[in-house]
Simulated scan of single mutants.
Amino acid sequence: MIKIGRPYIEDAPSWYPYFFDLAEGDDLIEALEINKQQTINLIRSIPASAENHSYAEGKWTVKQVFIHLNDDERYYAYKAFCCTRRVNAILELPQGEDYNKDFNAQNRTLTDIADEFIIIRDATISLYKHMTDAMLDFKFDNTPVYTARSVGWMVVGHNVHHHNLLKERYGV
């Protein structure tokens, strides 16, 4: 199986390196697998009584944080897919209130969200397992700079970032 090494800083937007630094290891598939287990362990450690906890007024609940992780992983995986298939789809996440309005969290449980995370992460891993170096490092001209390789490492670092916030600000 192919080993997917660390990303190249020049193949990523300026805010990605922060997330790259949070991701450990030197093989993306292994990092995705380890992070998957860390995320499942974290979710399972949260009592049902804390699912709707928010550390401050107007901040996400614990459930909303994990829904956000699921949503963003779908987004990043599709972005990576577009790179590998050379489909120039300029995909930028909406910013501000519109993006964060309705997670439908009130009708979900952490168990349900965890089950969804496993399916999404397994799909991400499957996508990356079949990429060549040419697919991983392809860049479009005249678009924001990113590659499938950099996006994959972003997925891991983004999860670690939110794990840290959950521990520091939510007391999880």
Rank of each mutant, 00 (worst) to 15 (best):
W15F: 07
L93Y: 00
A80I: 10
D122K: 14
I29M: 11
T39G: 09
V160C: 14
I4G: 02
A134N: 04
D72A: 13
V155W: 00
A123E: 12
N164I: 13
D21T: 06
Y55H: 13
V155I: 15
I9R: 08
R85H: 14
D21F: 13
G25Y: 02
R44P: 06
L91Q: 03
V151F: 00
H161V: 04
F138Y: 13
P17H: 06
W60I: 02
L32P: 00
K101E: 00
R44F: 07
A148K: 02
L93P: 06
I119F: 05
W153F: 05
W15G: 03
V172I: 04
M154S: 03
T39W: 03
E116F: 06
D122S: 10
G157E: 03
D122H: 07
Y170K: 15
K129L: 04
S126G: 04
C82M: 05
L127D: 13
N100T: 02
D137Q: 06
P7M: 05
A123F: 14
I119P: 07
T84Y: 13
R44A: 09
I113M: 09
D102A: 02
E168N: 08
Y18G: 05
N88Y: 09
I113Y: 02
S45C: 10
G5N: 15
G96M: 00
A23D: 00
T39D: 12
V145R: 01
E33T: 12
A114L: 10
M154Y: 08
V62Q: 05
